[in-house]
Design a protein around this nucleic acid. Structure first.
Length: 525
RNA sequence: GGGCGAUUAGCUCAACGGCAGAGCUACAGACUCUUAAUCUGUUGGUUCGGGGUUCGAAUCCCCGAUCGCUCACCA
């Protein structure tokens, strides 16, 4: 059974799936794992025809705790410690910092077909929705302290309260400590030494904790959200899911203060991104936005969900990884088509369910696959009419959908070549020097190149087909197997054993250059 | 030091108590203009090591190794 269907099958009654994110900056591609995991669980529940809602919260009352290195430090340092919804937007088109980065993230959601009901913590606080929870946690601060102590062995002072107000003097929320509560107002101090990354202003006073004047600490806030929204399923990254970790603490608080059972939980693993291959100099990297601009949505979903949540995913946008992703997807598509041809309403196996849940829409979109790695190769051949080439190499005539898929892949392949490919992953023509690897050529191969140079020199029609014929017939005439002949040619120009169709390749080069190079290689020791 | 997770073919992963598998790679063939293409086939395993439970263990238990994450605050 597919992992998400297992979770769906274990539930009873109406389900509320929840996930959330602090919009502290650009979102790394790894953050998409949680998003996709929850989306797939949501879809699995729908597929099982169980009543379900999917919520996504933006924790924009959290404090700005560092200035990302891609922002102007001087401009944002003054806002350290303030709620993200009160920090100015770093760019056009958003009212504030939190909205700016969360809407960037939501564009990716939209692209991936993830459509949860979105809510903002600022609204929950300011509209007073969390007031009853704030009151209850303040009244029962001792129970919260107990939970912290028992679960994660963290000591809290006797007069510690699970609440932080926004300082009325300096606007920071991270530095305030509440030390008293009279049922209507709390007494707070904005402490200079409360946080390592920012100093409080030293102000203090009595203030109402309600209607957006402050927030609950994260672990406590989590509980309030669960109860307010009726959350029944919420997974968390494994960093939160350790024994004694934040999820454990939140669970304990929910049990202690409300006597209720916490939502279903299971940790999910990270996505490990091979950092060295990332080209930061080209300004591209592994942000969720960048990767979603590179990969077609169903491929990105496929990457995230075919692996069960508790297994780590290794992903780098290098040749090996990215071509494999496309190939695996195509393999699944072909398997599905075969199944479809043999049965009316086929039962989907586990791998095909991964394909199903990868779709942005409701049905699996089938097409005639055209190998992605071949496209990467073809795009590097100068002056090649790629569409004609695709047509020629496809078994069946391509229909409208096929072309859509191919065109999308051409775009991806080109973008990958431009922004992500390492030099050694690209086709390199050696114009100025003879590739080193020609040194290993055998005597017969050198004789062949020499003969080929003579034949080509006399060739009148410098054109792909004719060149291909000449390369081939020369090898026949000398009795040298094509398996030896062609690599000799490729090595002379590319330094590799293989390459694009040799005739075409040479036809794009100057005749004099080709002849000279062949002779140079032939006589070199 | 404590905790959690992982470790299966060269690589990426599947199998989750019932014959250890797939894709890619590699290798070998086929296609008598044949070159990043296509097709066929083959190789490849002490399931990290050691012990135990079981009729039966990659799977469950114990000990150990390696790797990753985590264990003040914040999230």
């Amino acid at each position: 059974m597919f992992w998400a269907d297992k979770i769906a099958a274990s539930t009873q009654g109406e389900q509320v799936v929840n996930d959330s994110k602090t919009p502290s900056g650009r979102v790394h591609v790894g953050s998409l794992r949680g998003v996709i995991v929850h989306d797939v669980i949501y879809r699995a529940l729908k597929r099982a025809e169980k009543p379900v809602k999917f919520l996504y919260g933006i924790d924009d009352y959290d404090a700005l705790d560092s200035v990302p290195n891609y922002l102007d430090r001087d401009k944002f340092v003054p806002y350290l410690g303030q709620p993200l919804c009160n920090v100015p937007s770093p760019g056009e088109g958003a009212s504030d910092y939190a909205k700016y980065y969360s809407s960037e993230f939501f564009e990716v959601f939209d692209n991936l077909g993830v459509r949860p009901q979105i809510y903002y913590l600022r609204d929950l606080y300011r509209e007073g929705k969390l007031n009853p929870y704030i009151d209850r946690f303040l009244q029962n601060a001792h129970l919260v302290r107990e939970a912290y102590k028992q679960v994660s062995n963290a000591d809290r002072a006797e007069n510690w309260y699970p609440f932080q107000v926004i300082c009325q003097h300096c606007g920071k929320i991270a530095t305030t400590v509440v030390s008293d509560y009279n049922g209507k107002e709390v007494f707070y101090t904005c402490k200079p030494d409360a946080m390592s990354y920012v100093e409080g202003c030293g102000g203090s006073g009595w203030v109402s904790p309600f209607d957006g004047n402050g927030k609950l600490p994260w672990k406590v806030e989590w509980v309030a959200k669960w109860d307010l929204l009726g959350v029944t399923i919420e997974l968390a990254g494994k960093d939160h899911s350790q024994k004694g970790g934040s999820r454990d603490v939140a669970n304990a608080i929910y049990r202690k203060v409300y006597g209720k059972k916490p939502p279903f939980h299971s940790p999910y693993e990270f996505i490990l991104v091979g950092g060295t291959k990332m080209s930061s100099s080209k300004g591209v990297g592994a942000s969720a936005k960048e990767i979603s601009e590179l990969l077609p949505p169903e491929l990105l979903r496929f990457l995230m969900l075919r692996t069960q949540p508790k297994t780590a995913i290794n992903f780098s946008p290098n040749y090996e990884t990215i071509t494999r992703l496309f190939r695996d997807y195509d393999t699944a598509i072909e398997k599905y088509e075969k199944l479809l041809a043999s049965e009316e309403n086929p039962q989907l196996s586990k791998d095909l369910l991964a394909l199903y849940y990868s779709q942005v829409g409701d049905a699996i979109r089938t097409y005639q696959p055209f190998d992605f790695s071949t496209l990467i190769s073809l795009l590097q051949v100068p002056h090649l009419d790629i569409k004609a080439e695709v047509e020629k190499r496809s078994e069946q005539p391509l229909d409208k959908t096929d072309w859509e898929v191919v065109n999308e892949r051409i775009r991806v392949a080109q973008k990958w070549l431009d922004d992500y490919a390492d030099p050694e992953e690209k086709l390199v023509l050696y114009f100025d020097e003879i590739p080193e690897s020609t040194g290993d050529l055998e005597v017969e191969q050198r004789q062949y190149l020499s003969q080929l140079a003579d034949n080509l020199e006399n060739l009148e029609d410098w054109e792909g087909e004719a060149l291909q014929t000449e390369i081939f017939s020369t090898s026949k005439a000398l009795g040298l197997a094509p398996k030896k002949a062609f690599p000799a040619v490729y090595r002379s120009f590319l330094g590799k054993e293989r390459g694009p169709k040799a005739g075409n390749l040479l036809s794009y080069l100057e005749k004099s250059f080709v002849v000279k190079r062949l002779r140079d290689v032939a006589i070199a020791a």
